[in-house]
Design a protein around this nucleic acid. Structure first.
Length: 298
DNA sequence: TAGGCCATCTGGTCCT
DNA sequence: AGGACCAGATGGCCTA
């Protein structure tokens, strides 16, 4: 399944395979700057690596056709890579030195396209992760950087873990004695198959904090999870370096300084939906991270 | 203009 | 042998 990366990738700069292909390179040294960070909601910097000299492409084409290689129009995106592989199969790595220049170029192109696809797939996965993160998505909000996404995801997971612990604790408190009765030891998850008994937070403001993904783990664990084992929350904070600028942090809703509760979006949690002061989640998941995400909700 | 983020190229290594 | 994965290099775009 050649998940054509260009399909989903939010990266506006994802180059069209066609134009990519012969964009060739050859010129020493890496390459050619792909499209820059295509953030800024809409700014499409489609400057693919077409910086390579035009004559190269022509040269490459002619060389290829001279070598009997059908000049490929489509990238070797798996499906089409077969065309390239025909050339490379004829000349394997082992004869690399004996390969003609066009053959080498063909091989290089094939490898490049594979790598490109790999990275595109990675970006798609990254986008998928962004989508499920408690962070305001939208055209007006800047996309999370990769590192920010990863750090936020980590914190989010830790947060959810804390919430689970907290809920388990509450359940055991509420059901006190009988808890053991219907929570056999065989139900390590604590809440196992019974979702009903959950005391939906009403009237349990104390429990809420632990429940919110945006709250700093520190606050959560210190407040309600004395021995949850996740108490070393400080460690889940992202490296300070990610907080590029104080101003950014301040502007960064919900992350750095005054995260405006999901960056202006309604909190999906049931507690907040019932009644929630938009700013009880002031601190950040991990506090620092997310440099630019909010800095411009332009 | 510097710094951050990103895409791509490339060569090396590991795995199937 | 071929593909996946990785890390370094390079260069473009964007923001402060």
């Amino acid at each position: 399944m050649d998940s054509d990366a260009s399909l989903v990738s939010s990266r506006p700069s994802s180059p069209e395979p066609d134009e990519l292909f012969l964009a060739g390179r050859n010129k020493g040294g890496g390459g050619g700057g792909g499209g820059g960070g295509g953030f800024t909601g809409g700014t499409v910097s489609s400057s693919t690596q077409s910086d390579s000299p035009p004559e190269l492409s022509a040269e490459l084409r002619s060389a290829m056709s001279a070598a009997g290689v059908v000049v490929v129009d489509k990238l070797g995106f798996k499906s089409s890579s077969s065309s390239a592989s025909s050339a490379s199969s004829a000349s394997s790595k082992k004869d690399k030195k004996q390969m003609t220049e066009p053959e080498l170029q063909q091989l290089r192109l094939k490898i490049n396209s594979r790598e490109r696809k790999r990275m595109h797939d990675l970006n798609i996965a990254m986008d998928g992760l962004r989508e499920v993160m408690p962070y305001a998505h939208g055209p007006s909000v800047r996309k999370l950087s990769k590192i920010a996404t990863l750090l936020l995801a980590r914190n989010y997971i830790l947060m959810l873990t804390n919430s689970l612990e907290e809920m388990k604790r509450l359940v055991s408190e509420i059901y006190g004695g009988h808890h053991a009765a219907f929570h056999p030891a065989a139900c390590p998850a604590g809440m196992g198959a019974h979702s009903a008994p959950l005391p939906a937070h009403p009237g349990h403001p104390a429990s809420h904090p632990a429940h919110h993904p945006i709250l700093p783990p520190a606050a959560v664990s210190s407040a309600s999870l004395p021995g949850s084992g996740l108490s070393a929350v400080g460690s889940i904070r992202p490296p300070h370096g990610l907080l590029k600028s104080p101003s950014a942090a301040a502007a960064a809703p919900g992350l750095g300084g005054g995260f405006q509760h999901w960056g202006g979006m309604p909190c999906p949690c049931s507690m907040c939906q019932v009644a929630a002061p938009p700013h009880h989640h002031v601190s950040a998941m991990g506090g620092a991270a997310l440099p630019r995400l909010a800095s411009d909700a332009k």
